[in-house]
Design a protein around this nucleic acid. Structure first.
Length: 434
RNA sequence: GUCCCGUUCGUCUAGCCUGGUCCAGGACACAGGAUUUUCAUUCCUGCAACAUGGGUUCGAAUCCCAUACGGGACGCCA
């Protein structure tokens, strides 16, 4: 029997980061052992917007690069993969319980009769866990719909799921599930209860109301999916050799359930941001340009000039979310000057420096990085100040800020005419501030 | 309250199974510093942890027990 694992989200309209991590560990395990990864939508008892809500999950899964072998839109031999379409199967399984005298009715609901014996939960991460169910529990509501414990087990049994990999919040439920598997006369799968993801601040597990809890938010904020995925891999698992940023193929090669941690992990958005930055910087230029072009302030501006701007910004950029702001002044002659930064700059005599630099540019021949650097170095020598004084002042004049891409390359991309124009404009503007 | 799971730097973790090489390693964050090209980049340095108490042992982060703390489950939610 091959390995068959599944991710079984409920279409709530959100794709929670904890769910994504559960999906990821299932996916990694399936890919590691060459098994099947199944996606099943647990949409019982939900009338509203199931389609859109399902789509949030499907597109989130695809965005993170977790393709499924069976499930919505791809089919498979164990369908349907929506619980709302599996009522006939549930009736059949209910019949098995009825024949075995395992159920009874009360207040219109159907209850499962527990055995009163401790059940073994064979957990690959935690070792054997014993737990006893003390109370009979409802498997069909009085309105005729089946409840989670029932459909979850029926589907896992019917779909021949070999390993149930899910959050630790289900560990206590597992004794119910083991009883059901046995009552159906079906083999009990292996379990692997993975640790929970806790809030960055405060106590408790992350919930959809927490900031940064939704996959679609990261997508909206232009995170690189590879970076988020890489970060998620490291929440509860590690390659054990100090590597952190690693290609997914390598993670797949090394991943194993036995190496998953037992304790919960706190979500750290700073580390995620760091990882995203590392991925942004290491992107092949062509890929970086392709992605960056769509995020420029005005798509009409994309072109050779746009590409040049993007190319010099890659090494400084930490996320695509800030790209627009980072490059805006390249495309706008009326950019704002950051007056706050200006006050810090004043001790460097920026007006003097800008004026001296302007005079040199007006008379220079050729316009290259080397020539520009030569000018700055000579000026600094002549007036006995630091090169940084020129760089800071002139950068401010050209962009209104003191941070940005490599100074000389920035001017090269802007071109001599634009540089001259901006230096003059800056001097006029600054005059007004006095 | 009952039951289940867990506890190494602020955070993510390595080491624990197979006790000595660990006065505990890496990363993020933070703090300093460097690159005579500024910086939100890169590099270097520093800070910082085996929850507590017992036991086993020549020796315990590593094995056992208890306590404390954290998390989860106890729904006709999933």
């Amino acid at each position: 029997m091959g390995v068959r694992v599944r991710f079984a989200p409920s279409p709530t309209g959100f794709f929670h980061i904890g769910g994504a991590r559960t999906a990821l560990f299932n996916w990694l395990y399936a890919r590691h052992v060459g098994g099947k990864f199944i996606l099943r939508i647990e949409d019982t008892d939900r009338e509203r917007h199931v389609e859109e809500a399902t789509d949030v999950i499907l597109s989130g899964m695809r965005w993170l690069g977790m393709e499924w072998d069976e499930g919505p839109e791809v089919g498979g031999n164990y369908g349907p993969y929506f619980q709302s379409q599996r009522n006939k199967i549930y009736e059949e399984y209910l019949e098995i319980l009825r024949k075995g005298d395992k159920i009874y009715e009360r207040d219109g609901a159907i209850y499962f009769r527990v055995s009163g014996e401790p059940q073994l939960i064979d957990d690959l991460i935690r070792g054997p866990v014993h737990r006893m169910e003390e109370k009979d529990f409802v498997i069909f509501r009085s309105n005729g719909t089946p409840v989670f414990h029932f459909v979850n087990v029926v589907d896992d049994a019917a779909m021949e799921i070999s390993h149930v990999i899910r959050g630790e919040d289900h560990l206590s439920n597992s004794s119910k599930h083991v009883e059901l598997f046995k009552a159906f006369g079906m083999p009990v799968p292996k379990f692997a209860h993975i640790p929970l993801i806790l809030k960055t601040n405060g106590s408790g597990k992350m919930s959809k109301r927490d900031i940064g809890a939704l996959v679609e938010d990261y997508r909206g904020k232009q995170f690189l999916p590879e970076a988020l995925r890489n970060y998620l891999c490291l929440l509860g698992w590690s390659p054990k050799d100090d590597r952190e940023i690693m290609p997914i193929e390598e993670v797949i090669r090394l991943f194993d359930l036995r190496d998953i941690n037992k304790n919960n992990a706190r979500f750290d958005d700073k580390k995620l941001a760091h990882m995203n930055a590392a991925y942004v910087k290491s992107m092949p230029l062509e890929q970086f340009l392709e992605r960056g072009r769509n995020l420029l302030p005005d798509s009409k501006l994309a072109g050779e000039y746009g590409d040049q701007v993007l190319a010099i910004c890659q090494e400084k950029l930490r996320s695509f979310e800030e790209l627009n702001h980072f490059v805006s002044y390249f495309f706008n002659e009326d950019f704002e000057y950051d007056r706050e930064v200006w006050s810090d700059l004043r001790k460097r005599d920026p007006v003097l420096r800008i004026g001296e630099f302007l005079a040199k540019i007006e008379n220079m021949e050729g316009f290259s990085e080397e020539k520009l650097e030569e000018i700055v170095v000579k000026l600094a020598e002549t007036y006995g100040v630091k090169t940084g004084d020129y760089i800071h002042g002139v950068r401010f004049a050209l962009s209104g800020r003191t941070v940005g891409p490599s100074f000389y390359r920035m001017m090269l991309v802007m071109g001599r005419e634009r540089v001259l124009k901006r230096l003059k404009r800056a001097l006029v503007e600054i005059e007004k501030w006095k």
